[in-house]
C-alpha cells in the first residue's frame, strides 16, 4: 500500500520535470528544425514542424549570401566581428582581473578595500548610465565604430566581474603560504607566477567562460557604438530578423540564429559546470 503511493508520487514527479524539460527544449528544437526547412514549407504550415525536405542550403545562405540591411554577405562578417571583440576582451579582462584580485586579496596596501569596493559597484551600474560617457570617450580616442573600441569597453567593464571572481577565490589562499614566500624574498610578480597562478585554473576557467558568454551575448553597446558591417552578431541578428523581404525567409533566419547562438551553447555544453559556478558566485557577492 505504502509502496504504490510512493511509486505514484515518483511517477508524478518524473512526469512534471520531464514535461517542463520538454517545454524548455521546445524553442531550441523548433529553431533547429526550422533552420532545415524551406521558406515555402514554413509559409504553408507554421514555424513548428518536421522538415519534409532537408534544406541544408539555408546554412550556406545564412552564412555568406543572405542580405542584412544593404550588405549581402550573410552573418559571417558579424560572427567574425563578435569573435574579434569577444576573444581579446575576455582574455585581457581575465588577466587584469586576476592581477587586480591577487593584489587586493593578498597584498594589503593603502586604499585597497576602497578601490575594490568601487570596482565591484561597477557590476550594478546600469549600462544606460555609461552610454553617453562611452560615446565621448570613443570619439576622443578615435575609436567610434571600431572593434577595438568595443574591446576596450568590455575589458574595462568586465574587470568589475573578473576582479570580484578572482579576489573571492584568492582570499582562501593560506596566509602562511604568502608569508613563507615573502620571507624567502619573493616579490609581487614572482609570487603571482609561482604560487598564485598555478592555483588559479579553476577560477580562471569560470572567469573566462563568464566573460566569453556575456561579451558574446552583449547587444546594447554593439548596436549603439557600431554600424553596418562593423556590428557584432547580436546587433546583426536584430537587423536580420526585422528585415522585410518579399517572401519571409524564416528558414534562413533560423539558420542564422542557430549559428549565432552556437559559440555560447558549445561553451555551455562543455563547460556548463563552470558556467553555473560563475552564476552562483556572482549571486553570493
Amino acid at each position: 500500500m505504502a509502496d504504490t503511493s510512493i511509486n505514484i508520487r515518483r511517477i508524478i514527479v518524473y512526469g512534471i520535470v520531464w514535461v517542463v524539460a520538454a517545454a524548455w527544449l521546445f524553442p531550441l528544437v523548433v529553431v533547429i528544425l526550422n533552420s532545415l526547412r524551406t521558406a515555402e514549407e514554413i509559409a504553408q504550415t507554421s514555424m513548428i514542424g518536421w522538415p519534409r525536405v532537408w534544406a541544408w542550403g539555408n546554412y550556406t545562405q545564412a552564412w555568406d549570401t543572405y542580405c542584412i540591411a544593404q550588405t549581402c554577405s550573410g552573418i559571417r562578417p558579424y560572427m567574425l566581428n563578435s569573435a574579434l571583440v569577444t576573444i581579446p576582451a575576455t582574455l585581457i579582462s581575465t588577466l587584469l582581473g586576476a592581477v587586480a584580485g591577487y593584489a587586493v586579496s593578498l597584498w594589503r596596501f593603502r586604499g585597497d578595500s576602497w578601490i575594490y569596493g568601487i570596482v565591484t559597484i561597477g557590476i550594478f551600474l546600469p549600462q544606460q548610465m555609461r552610454l553617453l560617457p562611452w560615446t565621448l570617450v570613443l570619439r576622443d580616442l578615435g575609436l567610434t565604430n571600431t572593434l577595438a573600441g568595443l574591446v576596450m569597453i568590455h575589458t574595462i567593464q568586465g574587470m568589475s566581474f573578473t576582479t570580484l571572481f578572482c579576489r573571492n577565490y584568492y582570499v582562501s589562499i593560506p596566509a602562511d603560504l604568502m608569508k613563507a614566500a615573502k620571507i624567502d624574498g619573493a616579490g609581487f610578480f614572482r609570487i603571482f607566477w609561482r604560487i598564485v597562478l598555478p592555483l588559479s585554473p579553476p577560477i580562471l576557467i569560470v572567469t573566462v567562460i563568464w566573460q566569453f558568454t556575456h561579451i558574446w551575448n552583449e547587444f546594447l553597446y554593439g548596436v549603439t557604438f557600431t554600424t553596418g558591417t562593423q556590428q557584432p552578431v547580436t546587433a546583426a541578428l536584430i537587423a536580420l530578423a526585422t528585415s522585410v523581404a518579399d517572401v519571409p525567409q524564416h528558414g534562413i533566419q533560423s539558420a542564422a540564429v542557430v549559428v549565432a547562438a552556437l559559440p555560447t551553447l558549445l561553451v555551455y555544453l562543455f563547460g556548463g559546470r563552470y558556467f553555473v559556478r560563475g552564476l552562483t558566485a556572482g549571486a553570493v557577492k
Binding site: N217, A261, T264
Partner: peptide, 9 residues
C-alpha cells in the same frame, strides 16, 4: 541552458 544564450536569440 537558456542562460547561456543571448536575449537577442
Amino acid at each position: 541552458y537558456p542562460l547561456a544564450v543571448s536575449f537577442v536569440v
